[in-house]
Amino acid sequence: MRVKNRMTLNPIVANPKTNYNEALRLMKNNHIKHLPIVDKKGNPVGIVTRGDMLRAEPSPVTTLRVFEIASLLENVTMESIMKSPVLAVDESCSITNAANFMLLNEIDSLLVLRDETLVGIITIADIFRTFIEITGGGQSGSRIEAKLPNQKGHLAPFIQALSNAGSYIVSLAISNLDDTDFGYMDVKERGGNEAEIRKELDKLGYVEITSFRQSDSDKLLRLGKE
């Protein structure tokens, strides 16, 4: 999957001379948290996030009045608070590489270029939505976690065993978890019976089921006062 399939097209932008109050209006009116900064030719020169905006505001314990704060922020421009240089990828970049670039550089967005022209932005929220979709998050069914030898020829029988048990595979992910001897499977399935699935996988003789649970068994907790 490519960045171009998940990015926000034609992002809202500002220029280096845009002041704080106008930038804040752009963010609020368009429900965005990332504001690319471009020069007169439309070339990206920086980016401002909602966090950058908050850090530019006076302390919450300031003695300044509201109108004084507004007047003060009117003189704060994006060039004084933007992050520059700003990182970008081509629209053909894979989603996984984009996620890795964000992780390595400790950022939560990347500008997206087509022929060196700004055409979009992809954020960590887009990455999360993609991850949830490809792993079957939010869909009904069961989640199976299994461990099997990291050897050629073991994956196909594993999938066939699930099919024999009546399972429809919604998603399947494999990780080595720094263990070169074993592969760790994370399977989202629906339609299968747990007893039949365990029976079919047990026939293979090399699969260890480490977890078998219904997807809706996970609950969101609310802590503290409402």
Rank of each mutant, 00 (worst) to 15 (best):
A156G: 02
K225S: 14
Q139D: 05
H31R: 15
R222G: 03
T210P: 00
N100H: 08
L204M: 08
A125D: 14
R25Q: 15
A88N: 02
L204Q: 04
I159C: 04
L201D: 03
V187L: 07
D202L: 01
I121C: 05
M185N: 07
V187P: 07
S175Y: 03
G191A: 13
M1R: 09
K41G: 15
L104T: 03
E106T: 00
K203D: 08
E189D: 07
D202Q: 06
L172D: 10
Y206A: 06
T77A: 06
P36V: 05
E68T: 07
L118D: 01
M78N: 11
N10S: 02
G192Y: 11
R25N: 15
K219H: 08
R213G: 00
G138T: 04
L24F: 14
R213Y: 09
R6G: 02
Y168Q: 12
I121W: 01
I174T: 14
N19I: 07
I144W: 08
R65V: 09
A146W: 13
K203C: 02
N15H: 12
K83R: 15
G136V: 05
L110M: 03
I107S: 11
D216K: 09
L162Q: 13
I37S: 06
E226H: 13
I47F: 08
N30Q: 13
S163E: 15
F158Q: 13
P149K: 02
S211E: 11
L111R: 10
T180F: 06
E116C: 00
I134F: 05
S80V: 01
M53H: 04
E189Q: 15
I107L: 11
A99D: 02
V61P: 01
K199F: 10
M1P: 13
N105G: 09
V45M: 08
Y206E: 10
V187R: 05
V89S: 06
E68S: 04
L220V: 12
S217Y: 03
G183V: 10
I121F: 01
M27C: 15
P36S: 04
D186H: 13
M7S: 02
E79V: 03
D52V: 00
T62W: 05
I169C: 08
A195D: 14
V48K: 10
E145V: 06
E74M: 04
V38G: 04
K83L: 11
K83W: 00
D90R: 01
L155S: 06
L35A: 13
I95Q: 05
I12H: 07
S211V: 00
G136T: 03
P85Y: 10
R50C: 05
P36L: 04
L221M: 09
G153N: 01
V66A: 11
H31E: 15
I12Y: 11
S109G: 00
A88L: 08
G153E: 03
V66G: 01
E200P: 00
S211K: 12
N29L: 15
